[in-house]
Every structure is written in structure tokens, then in C-alpha cells.
Nucleic acid binder design. Sequence first.
DNA 1: CATGAAGTTGGGCATTTGTCTAAGTCACGA
DNA 2: TCGTGACTTAGACAAATGCCCAACTTCATG
Lengths: 211, 211
Amino acid sequence: MARIPVAQRRRDFIDAAVEVISSHGIDGATTRRIAEQAQANVAMLHYCYDSKEDLFADVYEYVSGKYREVIEGSDPHTTLPGAAQAILRGVMECYIDSRSFTATTFELVSWARRQHGDRGIAVYDQALDSLRKALQEAAAADPVAPEVIDEIAYVLATLADGFGVNWLTYGDTTAAREQMEVNCAVLDSWLTARLAAGPAKPARRKRAARA
Amino acid sequence: MARIPVAQRRRDFIDAAVEVISSHGIDGATTRRIAEQAQANVAMLHYCYDSKEDLFADVYEYVSGKYREVIEGSDPHTTLPGAAQAILRGVMECYIDSRSFTATTFELVSWARRQHGDRGIAVYDQALDSLRKALQEAAAADPVAPEVIDEIAYVLATLADGFGVNWLTYGDTTAAREQMEVNCAVLDSWLTARLAAGPAKPARRKRAARA
DNA sequence: CATGAAGTTGGGCATTTGTCTAAGTCACGA
DNA sequence: TCGTGACTTAGACAAATGCCCAACTTCATG
């Protein structure tokens, strides 16, 4: 009917997949459902993608990309705490903006883990990398030990993840906005204490926590 | 063969389901896989449970129960911060103890949400209720406004959830132990600041955040 | 206008899934 | 010993799923 070039069709399928995955889960996201959501045919899907796995790979990349955007595109700050605040806020706002995106991300991460093992955690890894880089840049004027950066990145991820789980579970926008503030307050009080304490934690022995 | 009473068989199926769900996801947890894991027959499963859904309901209850146990059974403390610390530690330790349990919990929560909508968030709701109750008890000597209790419960849940996601993703026990300490430090610094600040947050207007 | 590439589609295939049926097999009280 | 009721199992069933094929439509270009 509509006669749409493959490139556009692929984008449609990715969007459709995000929607379907968020409401039916990874395994509930069948080719037929995705095709229907994209107002296309099952055969069309296989005309654009060799396999369902191929489509999911694109969805995966799309999600990764969005994270990078949000993290790198957050309001630039010259202080480490400022940058950390801005990034955390950015991610949480992005979650609130699109529940489908949030749900799909969490589905993808857990799917990738059990599907591809180590290689599957790429989204998470990449997001943490962008995170570390952004923090390091913000702290350029007043450098901080890499272990501290790692720790901050981890806390940021933890707060964002925790926020995401709750937001997905309850879906209450008003509550979510309040919780966003709470999380920012949590980050703030901890960061202040942490940066005052010095580079090394009391009981640190081995290499820094990877995440 | 073995001739096992239904009651025991059911318990076996629940354990098997937890294992299979954690490694294959909810939808990957097929009756045949669960049966195999329980060293039983597919037909046996339907002899014990009318449907797969029935089995999952039991798994759901099992998970809920374990949360209640962990929260209510955490070391009793007379101070609010002490109790909060103990509970957070208890939950995180429980996660580290059993990755299957952790994974299954997260799978169940997301499955329940998209499957049963509001009714599906029961695990999360019940856990938060136990949490609030435990905190309230700990603060009996020096009462705190219910909004503050709610806020603390939310932060506790957020830190636990965030920890869980990371632990599931990387599965590094050593890192997880370090991160457990970080999360405790985060809770500690925020709680101190929060309890010093007074009952109401600066920009609070509506009812307290539900979770 | 012819033509061939690009896009579109209905129908079909093998496999997997949840569930059920009917036929066992065992333990134990009468 | 002989039921009788509790447990066990192989096999079958329809429905759903990922993927494919062969035929059809459109349209820019020669």
C-alpha cells in the first residue's frame, strides 16, 4: 500500500518494537504483534530484517544511543557535584518522558544478560562509560581519583535504576516527580560527605569496583 | 518412580520455577523446562497445578513471603537510622545469597505489572508495607512524621532495587559487597541530613509519595 | 511503453507451547 | 489378597510462533 523505503520502515519497526516490548515483554514481543503495531505485515518485517534477533539488535543500539545522548547532552557544569546532579536529573526525566523507553530498557538488559551473557551487558557498560567520561570532564578543573569517579558513577546508576523500577511499577507521574527530588537530595548529601572524605574509602583493598 | 506426595512436589515445582525463571525469564519458563528442573514430568506438573498460572501464583507468594521474612527478621534496632541500615543490609545480603531469587523477583514484578496491572504490584506493595511498619516500630521511642517514614521507605527501596539491577547485570560478588557498603554510606549520609531537616520537605505540597 | 528493481502480501511450514486423556503403577487398609 | 485411591506417564491436541516462498503492485528509468 503505502510504499515506504526500507530505511524508514526499519525505523518504524524499531519504534513499534519498543512499544510492544514495553507492554508485552521481550518474549511477548512477537513478530506479528510488532508488525501490527508498525502497521505492516509479518512478511514485511522479514523483508527489512533477516530475523527477529536482527531487529532486536537495532532496538538495542537505539536504546544505547539514547542513553549516550542524555548523558552527554546534559547541562554542562564545571563542578563534579553539579554535573552529577544534572546527569541524574536528565536520566530520570528521560524515564518520566517515556515509560515505554524505560520498560524496554529494563527488559533488554535482563534479556541480554540471560541471552548473551557477558556480551549482553553492553548497554549498561556503555552507559556507565559515558557516565564516567562525563564526570571526569566535569572534574577536570579539580581532578578526583578515578576510584571516586567510579563510585559516583555507580551511585548515579543505582539511584537511576531504583527510580526506574519504582516508576515502572507504579507509573504515578506526580509521585515520580517528587521521588526525583528525593533522589537528587540523596545524591547531594552523599556526594558532599564523600568528596570531603578524601580519595580512598576506609576499607578499600582491591581494584576499584567495576560499576 | 519416586512416589512423592503432592505437597512436596509442589514445593519442588516452586523451587524449580524460581531457578528456571531466573535463567530463562518468565516466558522462557516453560512447563517442560520447569518439569525437567524438578525432575518430573510435564503431566505431573498439571497433576499438582491446574495451570502454569497457578504455579506462578505460588511462586509469587513464595517471593513475597521471603521479603517479609527478611524485613521483619532483620536485627532489631531502637533507632530509626539503625533499623533502616539493618533492613537495607538484610535485603542486599539476601540478594547476594541467591541470584536466582533476585532475578526471579525482578522478573515477577515486571511480569505482574504488564499481566495484571494494578493487582500485579502486590509483591512490591507488600514489601513496602512491611518496610514502613518496621521503620515505624523502630521509631516508636522517638516518633517521626509518616511522610518521613514513607520517604525513607522509598529511598531504601530505591537503593535496594538499584543494587539488585547492578548485581544481576554483573554478578560480581566481590564488587557487590563493596557496593553494599557504598549504598549503606549513601543511606547514612542522607538519613542524617534528612532527620535533621525536620518533618516536611521545603517544596512539599500534596500528599506524601506513595512509595 | 517496457522493464526491472523495490516494496508488499497471503498463505504455508516446522517447531514449541499449554493442556488434556487414558492408561498405567504403587502402597496400604480391609 | 484384593481393591481403592494416590501418584506417574506417554502421547496427542490445538494454538501460537519464527521464518519463508512465490506471486503481486508500484514506479523510476531506458
